[in-house]
Design a binder for these strands. Structure first.
Lengths: 335, 335
DNA sequence: GTGAAAGCGCTAACAT
DNA sequence: ATGTTAGCGCTTTCAC
C-alpha cells in the first residue's frame, strides 16, 4: 500500500497505542524514553508526518495566517514597497509552523476577502496597508480573527486595532538633520499630493526639526509622485527661491526629477544644492548623482506585524497597540 | 451559543437530514428544489460556511496551492521580477477557491521546504525560479505533488517537469528588430555575466535576427548587471567601435549605465546612438532619456503556471510540457 | 429523492 | 506511564 502512513501505522510498528505514539511525537515528557525512541524510529521508518487537516479539525485551528496586500500592480504606488514586508511576514509565519496565505485585496469584491478571513481558512491576519484602501480596514474591523496592521489606522472604526508603522515624521526630521549637518540653511521641500497623509507627516517632521534648529524650513512646492512632476516642481522652486541650497523631496521619484531641473539650471549637486529623497528605492541608487534617501524599515514592519499577529492568536500580545519603528538615512552622493 | 454553526445546525433549522443539507449546499441536482431552498435559507440565516479543515480531512486534499519563490531580498537579482508572477498566481489560485500559500526558498534548509510540500499542507505548487536555485528544482523533483515551474528546467533531473518561460531569444530578436527598424546597422551588444543563461539566449536571438537581416551583430562587451558596469562597458565599446549607432544591453541597469558613458562622450541618444534595454524596469522609465526596453510577460507567466498547477491537480493538464511566452517591446525615447 | 451511518486522522479527556 | 475512546465537521456510500 502506498497511502500515507497514519499515527495508527506508527503505533502498530512501534508496538504501542495510538495515544502513546501521539504523545511521543508531540514530545510530551510523560512517555517512557524507550517507547518514545521506538515511536520515533517507527515514524522515521514509515516517513510519517502528521496530517494537517486532521490536526486542524481536531484543534479547531487552521494552522494558517493570512497576509493581506493591495493588489495594485508592480507599477502602482505601493507595489515596490509591499514586497519587503510580505517576505518578512512570510518568513516569521512559516518559522512559527503556520502556513502563510497570501490574499490580494483587489478593491472590488472586498466581501469575498472578508468572507475568506471569516470562514476558518486562517487563524489570524497580517494586513499590509501602506498607503491605500481606507475602506479595507473598515471592513476588517468585523473579521472574527486577530488582525495586525502594517501601516496606519485610517478610519476611526479601526482605531482600536493593532498597528505597526514607520515613523514618517521622524523620517522628515532625519532628512532635516542630514541637510542641517551639511551646513544647509536655505531650505525647501518638494511635497507629494496633499491627500497623502504620510507625505504630510514627513514634511511636518522636517519643518519641526528645522524650527528646533532655528532654521526656516522654506517653501513647500507640491506635486505628484512622479519624475516629471519633480522636474517641474524643482523648476518652480528655483523661481521661488533661487538661492536654495538644501532640498527635501518626500519621494525618490520627485527627487530624481528635481536632479534634472537642477542640472539644467547649472546647479551642481551636492556642491550648490544638496537633496534628500525618500524611500531609498532603486531610483535613488541609479540617479545621477545617487540620492541620499530616507529608508523605511519595511522588513522590520513585516516582521513585527507577523509576530504581533501570532501573539494575538496566542493571547500573549502585549505592549502598545501602536508600534512606531524609526526610519534610517542611506547616505549617497547628493548631500 | 456563539460557536460556528455546522451543517447539523443548518439541517436542523431546515428540517432535513445532514446528508440532504450537504447535498443542497454542494448544489447537487438530486435534491428537491423546495428543500434545497429551505436549506439555503437556513444556511444564510445562520451564517453557515463549510469548515475547511473538515472538508480537507474528508476529501484528502488541503485545498491549498503553494507558491514557492526565492527569498532573495528586494535588492537581489530577481526581487523586482518575482512580484508580478506571485501576484498573478495568487489571483488565479484564490479565484479557483484554493488558498495560495507563499513559501520562501531561503537557500539554506531546502529540506524543510520539501518536507512542507510533501506533508499534505498543499495539493500542488507553483515554483518561481526565474534565474536562480539550480539545486531547488532538483530537490523538487521528489515532491509528491504536481509542480508547475516559472522559468527553466535547470537540471536534467527536472527536465520532465512542467514549465512556463519567457522567450528570451525572442526578446533578443525583438531588440534587434527595433534597432534595425530604426535604420541602425553599426551594432553592438552589452552582455551580462557569462554564467547567466537567459542573458546568453537574448544575445543569441539578437545575433540570429541581425544575421537574417544581413547585418553584423557587432562586438559583444561583457559585464555585470550593474549601472557602473554598464558605464564602463559602454566606454570600452566606444573604443572598440567608435562608429556604433545601435546598442542592445541585456539589462536595463547596464543600458542606463551606458547612457552616462554616451552622454559623457557627447553622443546624443537616440540621434547618434539608439539603445535598447531589457526587463522594462523602473530604471528604464526614469533614465534620461527613458529607455526602450524588452519586457518579459511576468504576469502571464504567473497566470499560466498557476493554471497549469491547477490543471495538473485536476488531472486535466494538456499541451506541451514547456510553454514559451513571447516578450514585448516598450518603446520610449532611446530608439 | 432522502436518510442513516461510517470514517477521514488526530487529540485529549478519562480510566487504569 | 499507558491505553481506551469519543468526537472535531464533513462527505459519501449504502439502504430505502
Amino acid at each position: 500500500m502506498s497511502r500515507r502512513p497514519t499515527l495508527v501505522d506508527v503505533a502498530r510498528l512501534a508496538g504501542v497505542s495510538r495515544a502513546t505514539a501521539a504523545r511521543a511525537i508531540a514530545g510530551q515528557p510523560t512517555v517512557d524514553p524507550a517507547l518514545a525512541a521506538r515511536v520515533e524510529e517507527a515514524a522515521r521508518e514509515l516517513g510519517y508526518t502528521t496530517n494537517p487537516a486532521a490536526r486542524a479539525l481536531r484543534r479547531g485551528r487552521a494552522g494558517a495566517v493570512a497576509i493581506v496586500v493591495p493588489a495594485s500592480d508592480a507599477q502602482g504606488q505601493s507595489g515596490p514597497f509591499t514586497a519587503a514586508p510580505i517576505r518578512a511576514a512570510t518568513r516569521v509565519i512559516f518559522d512559527a509552523g503556520q502556513q502563510p496565505v497570501l490574499l490580494l485585496d483587489e478593491g472590488r469584491d472586498t466581501d469575498r476577502l472578508v468572507r475568506h478571513l471569516s470562514a476558518g481558512h486562517v487563524d489570524a491576519a497580517v494586513v499590509i496597508l501602506l498607503y491605500e484602501s481606507v475602506e479595507l480596514d473598515q471592513v476588517l474591523a468585523d473579521v472574527p480573527i486577530p488582525v495586525a496592521h502594517v501601516g496606519r489606522p485610517s478610519s476611526e472604526r479601526s482605531a482600536d486595532g493593532w498597528f505597526v508603522e514607520a515613523d514618517q515624521a521622524g523620517g522628515g526630521r532625519q532628512a532635516a538633520e542630514t541637510l542641517l549637518d551639511a551646513g544647509r540653511h536655505r531650505l525647501a521641500t518638494l511635497a507629494g499630493p496633499d491627500h497623502f497623509g504620510p507625505g504630510r507627516e514627513r514634511l511636518q517632521g522636517f519643518a519641526d526639526r528645522c524650527r528646533e534648529a532655528g532654521v526656516d524650513p522654506g517653501p513647500r512646492v507640491p506635486g505628484e509622485y512622479e519624475l516629471e512632476a519633480g522636474t517641474r516642481a524643482a523648476e518652480e522652486l528655483l523661481r521661488q527661491r533661487p538661492d536654495v541650497d538644501g532640498i527635501f523631496a518626500t519621494s525618490d521619484l520627485v527627487a530624481a526629477g528635481a536632479l534634472r531641473a537642477l542640472a539644467a539650471a547649472g546647479r551642481r549637486v551636492p556642491d550648490d544644492v544638496a537633496i534628500v529623497g525618500f524611500d531609498d528605492t532603486v531610483v535613488a541608487a541609479t540617479s545621477d548623482p545617487p540620492l541620499t534617501s530616507v529608508r523605511q524599515p519595511f522588513d522590520e514592519l513585516g516582521t513585527r506585524a507577523a509576530r504581533l499577529a501570532l501573539a494575538l492568536l496566542a493571547g500573549t500580545a502585549e505592549g502598545p497597540r501602536r508600534q512606531v519603528v524609526p526610519t534610517t538615512v542611506t547616505v549617497r552622493e547628493s548631500t
